[in-house]
């Protein structure tokens, strides 16, 4: 049993470390990717709209060849599901995971597993495209060995999310719609940026992002950090990478103006619990009642709704800048 605990602990660390590594890795990957995306984009626009076959280099580094427009799509990651539905291709989706909850109709679609994918189920649904995430790991190569066409996404930033949306658009023959979705996302981002750009540096609010009650937080390289900084906030632990567990002293000393909780959807009274912490009572965010729950579905999923998450964060940070509009 104690050995079991240790193994579980070890697994936990491997997960944490690999999340951290992903965070680091994403720094240098996008450039290379950007080039290939743009190149093939140009190629395709030069040709006609639905020019299949298309060849796409996906986020796993694999060249994926899609012979004709996919009619049966399986999404094994909620962010991909949101992208596909965002491109109005929802009626082509024949399989999703247990974790999918948006849009509402996905709950009607057959499930192919949760965190662990059911490969048999996926193959039996005869998909002509499976959209996965780099975190699906082993399952991806297993599916590919069985001749299933797998497109792997792995966005870790807004910029990469745009690229992933365009990649999916290309793979499904919805390039125009993808451009439209990305365009409106960029507009959202611009409107937030322009609303907060005049705030002088010393008036920008400091933010503590709490990802777990044990004071896990989101450092640089994470979506949450990018969203908070884009919305004009200052993450108090942006000097750390990935998902660090932070010492309580650090938070109290940094004295954040605003606190965001990402786990409020599954922990009861999360906001109240933070406010009740005895040693936190002098923190500005607690005194000014600035503790907000964040819907992690729209702040952590690399899909079209991520900019909604950005707007929500910005409105919580600077309500006065947004209520006037």
């Amino acid at each position: 049993m104690r050995q079991g605990l240790r193994i579980l602990g070890l697994l936990f660390f491997i997960v944490l470390v690999s999340i951290g590594l992903l965070g680091c890795a994403s720094d240098d990957e996008p450039n290379q990717e950007e080039n290939t995306t743009e190149e093939s984009e140009n190629n395709q626009e030069a040709a006609s709209e639905s020019a299949f076959p298309v060849t796409i280099t996906d986020d796993s580094g694999e060249e994926v060849v899609i012979e004709e427009e996919p009619e049966r799509i399986i999404s094994v990651i909620p962010s991909a599901t949101e992208i596909i539905f965002g491109l109005d291709l929802g009626d082509k989706v024949v399989g999703v995971t247990d974790n999918d909850n948006y849009p509402e109709e996905v709950t009607e679609i057959e499930s192919v597993g949760g965190l662990e994918l059911n490969t048999e189920k996926i193959i039996s649904l005869e998909p002509d495209l499976v959209v996965a995430d780099v975190n699906n790991g082993e399952a991806i190569s297993q599916l590919r060995e069985h001749g299933v066409n797998v497109l792997v996404l792995g966005a870790q930033s807004l910029e990469e999310t745009y690229e992933d949306i365009q990649t999916v658009g290309k793979a499904t023959g919805a390039v125009e719609k993808a451009d439209e979705v990305v365009g409106s996302m960029k507009e959202d981002v611009e409107s937030v940026k322009s609303a907060v750009q005049d705030i002088p540096d010393d008036e920008r609010k400091t933010v503590w992002i709490e990802v777990g009650e044990e004071l896990f937080s989101a450092g640089s390289g994470t979506f949450l950090n990018e969203l908070v900084e884009t919305a004009g906030g200052k993450n108090i632990i942006s000097d750390q990478e990935g998902w660090p567990q932070v010492n309580e002293e650090e938070v109290i000393q940094a004295n954040p103006d605003v606190i965001f909780l990402t786990y409020a959807s599954y922990v009861e009274n999360a906001v109240q619990k933070v406010k009740d912490r005895e040693s936190w009572k002098d923190i500005t965010a607690i005194k000014d009642d600035q503790v907000y729950p964040l819907n992690s579905d729209i702040t952590e999923r690399a899909g079209p709704r991520i900019t909604e998450g950005l707007q929500m964060i910005a409105e919580n940070l600077y309500p006065e800048k947004f209520n006037q509009e």
Binding site: F12, L115, E214, E248, Y266
Partner: peptide, 20 residues
């Protein structure tokens, strides 16, 4: 346990933090 996994695992590993 899905998203609660981390909290449970953390508890099992033991810690003296967040005490009063």
């Amino acid at each position: 346990s899905d998203e609660k996994m981390q909290t449970i695992m953390y508890w099992m590993m033991g810690s003296l933090s967040l005490t009063d």
